[in-house]
Amino acid sequence: MPDLAFDVAHLLAGSLVLVSLMLLYQDRLPALINVFALHAILLAASVAWQALVQDAPVLFVTAAIALGFKGIIIPGALRRIIVRLGIHREIEPVVGIGPTMLAGMALVALSMVVMLRATPAASPFAREDLAFALSVLLLGLLMMVSRRNAVGQVIGFMSLENGLILAATGAKGMPLVVEISVAFSILIAFIVIGIFLFRIRERFDTVDLQALDRARGDQR
């Protein structure tokens, strides 16, 4: 049984890294959002498995939050936003898929080296989990850096945050995990708005909503 628990956790966390890499090369926004939803669902599965293995029912709440918020609500909202903004058919040029993927792999290798060396005393469970979580985090950052589109950056940030939750649930006995994950989700909502405001300011030199009206042609 312990072997199975470890294997499944390993599998789920590993596929999270894989999906993170997949996120890197999606150049159409709808596809990007779909892959992100998959990312969130995998996270929910991983957290749920940890809840089962660690016998910590609070983690089920975290998993439900991850599934509901990030797997369903936010991707749905993002789809509506891009349809509204009329950018759902645009192809977002990703800066060189090859170099980005190579950089992503280098980051995964780096996080493995750092984490496995830094935590020789921890249980293998936590070690692998932390290493994967760091990879997801770094890949999310890489994605934020390599995208020009605000939606791409938001998704990068949220995949980064998925990495954080993975790290938090991998270690045993984190009593505040539920609260922290809820807090983070709210934070993300703020960041989403914040980045949109940033982008609007960059494009229109103002965060004044009248500028948005003008841009949409609603001016009376």
Binding site: L107, L110, S111, V114, L138, L141, L142, M144, V145, R148, Q153, I195, F198, R199, E202
Partner: peptide, 17 residues
């Protein structure tokens, strides 16, 4: 730009790692 700032943070983090 915000992307440049993010790049700075990212490069610093990777360099430290």
């Amino acid at each position: 730009t915000i992307r440049r700032y993010l790049t700075l943070v990212f490069v610093t983090l990777v360099a430290l790692l």
